[in-house]
Design a protein around this nucleic acid. Structure first.
Lengths: 144, 144
DNA sequence: CGCTTAAAGGACATACTTATCCTTATTAGA
DNA sequence: TCTAATAAGGATAAGTATGTCCTTTAAGCG
């Protein structure tokens, strides 16, 4: 469904959002620990998030990552998923047909289209800010 | 979502089912052509389907693959997907948590559980026999 | 300025998926 | 029995995802 890179990104962003609301920067080590991910690999995917403009970073002593308040207001999971994994999950046919559509459907097209729409809706309606609030209240976890 | 191997398997099975109802065996070359897949790799995944008991094969001249009538009656996509890709799609957390549940949910657990149930239902309710009927009537395609 | 800290970036390593090729076993038919 | 056709199986290659390591760049602080 989602790549490991994308899973780490989503979890990292939720954690970072919480920390940012507390006015704190987080270094890679803290993030990797909070989401139980390999540190070096996490650093790589965080770079992608910075390049995509989803999170911000500060180098050097007292540096780290954070999310700008105004970015957090509208940031949702669809933005992150498409930036990291591309539009495959959203666009692709379940059976991999290049041209799968209403007029040229694969055998499961009509059954799958509703599910795909639901996935897009889940991602699009999942505001990082909302997820973070739940996480702060310990109503959800980012690791076991 | 599904591996390439799994995509090929599903398409191969739908094609094979149609041919089997016509009383014909199909060789790898015909199958690969019908579903637009690489021949050698398709041969490999067909072997897995034979081992799993989903399809049957005959070696030698006039040999090929087919599906037994009684197998076809109850064969559905969930059986094929779990045999080829395992239970990951069905069991795994969207964010990859090892222990994601109602009492210990990831940030999207409650939103995702319905979608996962829908995916399982799609696969479980998709009888290969039914898909084949539609395919025979040219209401769906296996390649472009 | 020089030291320390931390992100950025590049190179490399590992694992898995996808794909190909060649050989072997099996079968039908001449 | 010999030959051709075809699945089965093993080895290998190519590609992608995942993960690690080391160097470079930037920033804060004494």
């Amino acid at each position: 469904m989602l790549s490991k890179a994308c899973e780490y990104c989503i979890k990292a962003v939720v954690f970072l959002a919480q920390r940012s609301k507390e006015g704190k920067l987080s270094i890679v080590k803290e993030i990797a620990q909070a989401i139980d991910s390999p540190e070096a690999f996490t650093a790589k995917v965080l770079q992608q998030l910075v390049k995509g403009g989803f999170i911000s970073s500060v180098k050097g002593v007292k540096g780290g990552f954070f999310i700008e308040e105004k970015t957090l207001q509208h940031l949702n999971l669809l933005q992150i998923v498409t930036a990291i994994d591309g539009r495959g999950l959203i666009d692709n046919c379940m059976l991999g047909l290049n041209q799968c559509s209403e007029v040229n459907p694969c055998p499961v097209h009509h059954l799958y289209k509703g599910i795909k729409a639901d996935i897009v809706q889940l991602l699009n309606c999942s505001l990082v800010n909302d997820l973070t609030i739940e996480f702060s209240q310990k109503l959800s976890v980012l690791k076991n």
